[in-house]
Design a protein around this nucleic acid. Sequence first.
DNA 1: AACAATAATTGATCTATGTCACCTTTTATA
DNA 2: TATAAAAGGTGACATAGATCAATTATTGTT
Lengths: 190, 190
Amino acid sequence: MCTALQQQIEHIIPLNPAEFNFFLSHFTEKKLKKGEFLIREGNKVQADFFIVKGCLKAYHIDNKGTEHILQFAVEDWWITDFQAYLLKTPATINIVCLEDCEVLSLSFNDREKLCAQSHTIEHFFRKKSNFGFVALQKRILSLLTSDAKERHTQFLNAYPQLYQRLSKKVIAAYLGVSRETLSRLRRKKL
Amino acid sequence: MCTALQQQIEHIIPLNPAEFNFFLSHFTEKKLKKGEFLIREGNKVQADFFIVKGCLKAYHIDNKGTEHILQFAVEDWWITDFQAYLLKTPATINIVCLEDCEVLSLSFNDREKLCAQSHTIEHFFRKKSNFGFVALQKRILSLLTSDAKERHTQFLNAYPQLYQRLSKKVIAAYLGVSRETLSRLRRKKL
DNA sequence: AACAATAATTGATCTATGTCACCTTTTATA
DNA sequence: TATAAAAGGTGACATAGATCAATTATTGTT
């Protein structure tokens, strides 16, 4: 169950079993059913979540009632409302399970404590944040430079397995187009 | 000249003068004229840059020849092609001076060395990366949820001084609209 | 298995924004 | 200071994508 997390960490830093167990002891396991919320807009955000199993979406509903998806998360990814987590402000996004999920949660305080105690762990989280930053930068460039069709192709090519796993509705909300437009794009392309 | 950097760091971590001087000794000062490039698409990216004075834009030209701006940087901000910096791949964006500039550059190797040597410095860079991540997340949500008029208002409210400093052309390229559309938005609003 | 709810598709419009063309104003530069 | 170059504005038209409405799968629930 925790081997996925261990592998991810070892990809960046070496930790011996004792160190890893110490690290892991700060996480809490949570199981959620499809449709359950990990984070709700307006609430406090206590933790960052590592996905052991399942699939989630982080989204915001605009004033017209349209849903916009900031991020998906599947096995081995992390998800939270990072702004709220970091700044201790109320959540501005919702995170809900698209499938039954198993996650490991790490509280803000525990993360900071771990980072303060262990230079190696702080290094891991710096690297993780760096990679996250790069991923977001790519998404912004894609939103700025590419039209709906291009973004659709990019997403399909980048995450073919995830694409299959998701409903068209959420893919559209992630790409920033209406369900109808996505349907028309697919008719032409596939 | 370096007091700005010192203040930014002290905002996050305490460093005594000796430590700060050691930190600073890894930076190289560079002066550039308006129009000079810090980074060019296709080239290697040797460094991350702290802006002491001036204003720059990071942009990409799409296949239709349209410019899209990923980020501006003014005094106290950092700028680089982070993806290329981190992954040692060729730059995918250009960074050019919009005014005469004075920057402090930190090479990737020096940054890693500093982080490895000093837990405190690694902590600083983790925090910096975290804040950057949050800023990008906000931009994505804004691109997804807001139309041109709303994005314009948000930008004007968030960075009123910067707005004054920039040409309409680059503001449009940052917001993701044409020069003409921005001009029409302004006629209605101001 | 039957029924309700939700997802996906498709056609007919509507609308925000892009594009092109032209003009005016401001900013560099010889 | 004159002249060129770039920035900014505006009208007419084109278009990608949204919205609305209706229809057909698909999925979940008793």
